[in-house]
Design a protein around this nucleic acid. Structure first.
Lengths: 212, 212
DNA sequence: CCTACCGATCGGTAGG
DNA sequence: CCTACCGATCGGTAGG
C-alpha cells in the first residue's frame, strides 16, 4: 500500500522543480533564469531535472498552463458574490487586490509570456479560460438593468483592464507618487468604473454633495 | 568646417548601436539579447561596441532614459487639444492608440524594466516626467467643473490606466476574442471612462436612448 | 574599428 | 538521481 503513495516521490520532485522555476521566472524573467539555478533551488543536480522535464521550455510551458495569472483571476471573479452591480464589482476588486498584495509578482508570468514568448500561448490560455468567461458573463447579466447597454464581454474586459491598470500603475509608481495620486486609489478607480458603467437612474447615491 | 560635422561619425555609430539594441530588447527581452547580436545588427564587430558603451547594462540604461514609453506618452497627452473634457480625452486616446499601432512593441520596454530590472529605474523616470505631469494636471484643471471631484493626479493615473489596459488586453486577446469584445473597444473604454469622471449634469448627451 | 582571445556559464546529454 | 562531460555562447578585454 505504502509502495504507491498518492503523491509519488517523482511527482514531488517534479513539483519542487516547477515551484522553484516559477519563483525564479517571475523574479528574474525566463532567459535570465538558468536550468542550474532551477535545479539547485529545487535541491537537485542539473542532470536530474531532465528526468522530469525535457527542456527549460517544457518547464515554462507547464508552468504557464497551470499558473498563468488568468487562472487565478477568473475563478476569483467567478466566486464573487453581490446583490447589486456595485457590491459585485467592489467585492471582485477587493479580492483581486488582496491576492495581488499577497504575491505582487504573480502578474509577471503574464508579462514574461508577452515579451519573451511574444504571446504565443495566448490561444491555448484563452481556450481554457473560456468556460469561466461564459460563467462570469452570465453572472453579470443578472444586473443588466442597472447597467449601460455594454456587451458583457466588453464589460469584463474593461473591468480586468481597470484592475490591471490599477496595479501596474501601483507597482510602477509605488512610493514615488504624491499622496493624492495614491490614497484610496483602488476605491477611486472603482468609483470611476462603476459610475461609468451604471445607468444614470434617480436613486444613484453619488458622493458629490458639492454639485455646484 | 566639415572636419566637425554636427553629428560626428562616433555619434552616428553610438546611435546605430542604441537603435539596434532598442529593437532587439523590445522584441526579445534584455537577457535574451546578446552584445554580439546588437553589434552585428548595428554593423559592427563585438569589440567595437565597447568603444561606445562600457557594458550591456550601460546600453540599456541609456535606452530607458531616452526611450521609455512614458517619454512618448506624456508629451503626446500634453500636446492634446480639446474644448471639453470629452474632446480632450477622446483626442488623447486616439493619439496614443495611433502611436501604439505604429509600434506595438513600444510598451515592452516598460514591461522589461518591470520584470528584468524590478523597476529600479522608476525613481529617475518619475523625476524626469514630473514637469509634464504638472503641465497636464494644469490642462485638465480647466475642465474642473465638468468633472467629478477627483484629484488631477489620480485622474491622470486612471486615464493612463484605461489606455494601458486597453492595449494590454488588445495585445493579449488579439484575434481570439468574440467580436463583441473587440468592436470599437477603444470607444467603449473611453465612453466608460468619460461617463465615470463627468459630473452628471442635465445636458449630458448619452447614447442611451433606450433608457428603459 | 577589428581580430583574437579570456574565463564563465549556458542548455543539454551520456553513462552509470 | 549524480558526475562529468559536450559544443556553443555569453559579457567583456587586450593589443594593435
Amino acid at each position: 500500500m505504502t509502495d504507491e503513495p498518492l503523491i509519488s516521490k517523482s511527482d514531488r520532485t517534479a513539483r519542487a522543480i516547477l515551484d522553484s522555476a516559477y519563483r525564479l521566472f517571475v523574479s528574474q524573467g525566463y532567459a535570465a533564469t538558468s536550468m542550474r539555478q532551477i535545479a539547485e533551488d529545487a535541491g537537485l543536480a542539473l542532470g536530474s531535472a531532465y528526468n522530469h522535464f525535457s527542456s527549460k521550455d517544457d518547464i515554462f510551458k507547464t508552468i504557464i498552463l497551470k499558473r498563468h495569472p488568468i487562472f487565478v483571476i477568473m475563478p476569483l471573479i467567478k466566486a464573487t458574490k453581490g446583490n447589486t452591480i456595485e457590491e459585485f464589482i467592489r467585492n471582485a476588486a477587493r479580492t483581486l487586490v488582496a491576492e495581488l498584495e499577497q504575491n505582487p509578482e504573480f502578474i509577471n508570468l503574464l508579462l514574461i509570456e508577452m515579451v519573451e514568448f511574444k504571446g504565443q500561448h495566448a490561444p491555448l490560455l484563452f481556450e481554457r479560460v473560456w468556460p469561466d468567461l461564459l460563467a462570469i458573463a452570465g453572472q453579470v447579466a443578472v444586473f443588466q438593468d442597472e447597467l449601460q447597454p455594454i456587451p458583457p464581454p466588453l464589460l469584463l474586459r474593461a473591468f480586468l483592464g481597470m484592475f490591471f491598470s490599477y496595479f501596474i500603475t501601483d507597482i510602477l509608481l509605488k512610493n514615488l507618487m504624491p499622496a493624492a495620486m495614491q490614497e484610496n486609489a483602488l476605491d477611486r478607480f472603482v468609483d470611476i468604473f462603476l459610475n461609468g458603467i451604471k445607468q444614470p437612474v434617480d436613486n444613484r447615491k453619488l458622493n458629490t454633495s458639492e454639485s455646484l
